[in-house]
Simulated assay, not measured.
Amino acid sequence: MAGASMKDIKLRIKSVEGTMQITKAMELVASSKLRRAKERVEHSRPYFDVLHAALDDIAYSNDEFRSPYMAQRPVKTSCYVVIAGDRGLAGGYNANILKAVAAHAEGKNWCVLPIGKKALEHYRRRGVPIVTDRYAEAADVEMSGCYDIARTLAKGFVNGEFDEVILAYTNFVSMLSQQPATLKLLPLNYRKAEKGSGPRQTTLYEPDCETVYNAIVPEYLAGLIWGGLCESVASELGARRTAMDAASKNAGEMIENLSLHYNRARQAAITQEITEIVAGAEG
């Protein structure tokens, strides 16, 4: 700020104060939404835990059980479901998940089903094949949308459009920590219980085990996607809150420095005026 006039410094202080008000408001909004997002994360977990237990029960209790969703075949094409944000100003939230996907998919032939505006824009710019762009707004994706996504993925896997499906999301660890994560959705994998490891319950499924299993799988996938979406939304809000808090603190430090420069310039101006008055009186 060397050589800047008092008026310029004062305008700069007002500008930084305006920015600080915006970042403070965004921090408060993110904090308010984060509480609801954390509750949604906690409420989403029991749903697919029950479905996972049902799938395991069917698979483990039938030695000759087969399902197209368990088909292990050479991976020619991978499909990534990438959950990112709709907006920026969230620190490294969007960049971190996109970098994690790029590292995980390196050397693969892959396509992507993006959820969130930032993910869609990123993969469009890079020419990555996109399964569908119907979910460009992550904030608009509800449980019904997750069912649609799950059915699309299940159908594509069974039809051989892709040989594995991977969910990429951000795991909410705490207010200050959010970690990118990947989860393999398809093919489903499990280890059969060894004979003699203990008694197993026998459950009768109608019309048959495979039909029930194949009907539950899309529901299970939808639950996993919904859980990943809830985790990602909470992570985005946590990252935005942290980023806005840091921005507010930086703005406060800038205001202090600018105020110091302003006071020095004002003191210099007063000293100059006194000097001129004294010189004029002596003359």
Rank of each mutant, 00 (worst) to 15 (best):
Ala30Val: 03
Gly85Pro: 04
Tyr205Pro: 04
Ala37Val: 02
Gly160His: 09
Lys99Ala: 12
Thr19Pro: 00
Arg40His: 11
Ala53Cys: 07
Arg266His: 12
Thr202Gly: 10
Arg36Gly: 14
Ala215Phe: 07
Pro129Gln: 07
Glu282Ala: 05
Gly116Trp: 05
Asp208Glu: 09
Tyr47Lys: 03
Ala102Gly: 04
Ser67His: 02
Thr19Gly: 12
Arg266Lys: 14
Leu120His: 09
Gln201Cys: 12
Arg151Ile: 15
Ala59Gly: 02
Lys195Leu: 15
Ser32Asn: 13
Asn257Arg: 11
Met70Thr: 13
Pro199Arg: 12
Leu185Ile: 07
Asp148Met: 06
Ala136Ile: 01
Ala243Gln: 02
Met6Gln: 11
Met6His: 06
Ser144Pro: 06
Ile130Arg: 00
Thr203Asn: 12
Ala105Gly: 05
Glu194Pro: 03
Pro46Ser: 06
Glu42Val: 09
Glu106Ile: 05
Leu55Glu: 07
Asp8Phe: 07
Tyr169Glu: 10
Leu185Ala: 10
Ser232Met: 00
Asn214Gly: 07
Ser61Thr: 04
Ile130Leu: 02
Pro199Phe: 13
Leu224Arg: 15
Ala239Ile: 01
Thr170Gly: 04
Arg241Cys: 02
Ala215Ile: 02
Asn257Ala: 15
Glu231Met: 07
Thr152Trp: 08
Arg124Glu: 13
Pro218Ser: 07
Tyr190Asp: 08
Gly227Arg: 06
Trp226Lys: 08
Gly160Phe: 04
Val217Ser: 10
Asp163Tyr: 01
Glu256Asp: 11
Cys230Asn: 09
Ala71Leu: 05
Arg191Val: 14
Ile274Tyr: 14
Val50Thr: 10
Ala281Val: 01
Gly88Cys: 00
Met143Phe: 12
Pro114Gly: 07
Ser78Gly: 02
Arg73Asp: 06
Ala181His: 09
Tyr69Glu: 10
Gly107Leu: 00
Ser235Lys: 01
Gly198Pro: 00
Ser177Ile: 14
Asn214Lys: 02
